[in-house]
């Protein structure tokens, strides 16, 4: 775990990695709705593969948590206290890392909120 964290801390958070958690959330959201709509319309019941849906949700959550952990590691890069608003490399990195971490938190909750009704209701009506 420690080695993994060390390796993660060497990754650079960029604008591209910033959008990983909300993108995973968007894909999960779209997939859930499409799957439910097609499944209900074509076979009249939800769902054909409930286990596959649960696995997909877990994968989405793992991806989001991984992005969050990497961002959390980098947000702890030593430097001045917040707000990280100077135009320096270190402040830019910490700002991006902190934003990614918050987005990961939001996306994690959003994926759970999307998945809970699907899993607990499991009905097309």
């Amino acid at each position: 775990m420690k080695r993994w964290l060390q390796r993660a801390s060497r990754l650079r958070v960029t604008l591209w990695t910033l959008i990983v958690p909300p993108t995973v959330w968007a894909v999960h959201f779209l997939f859930s709705y499409l799957w439910a709509a097609i499944s209900c319309e074509k076979i009249g019941e939800w769902a054909l593969f409930p286990t596959a849906f649960a696995i997909g949700t877990v994968i989405a959550l793992v991806l989001i948590v991984a992005s969050g952990v990497i961002a959390w590691q980098q947000s702890r890069t030593p430097g001045d206290p917040p707000p990280h608003q100077e135009g320096t490399d270190i402040d830019r990195l910490r700002f991006l890392a902190y934003s990614t971490m918050l987005l990961a938190g939001l996306s994690f909750v959003a994926v759970l909120f999307t998945a809970l009704p699907v899993i607990m209701l499991g009905d097309c009506r």
């Binding site: 909750v109 759970l112 909120f113 809970l116 009704p117 607990m120 209701l121 499991g122 009905d123 009506r125």
Partner: peptide
């Protein structure tokens, strides 16, 4: 999350 999880079983048709 707690309120959602509590209310969902009531919404089951």
């Amino acid at each position: 999350m707690g309120l959602l999880a509590y209310s969902l079983p009531y919404m089951r048709p």
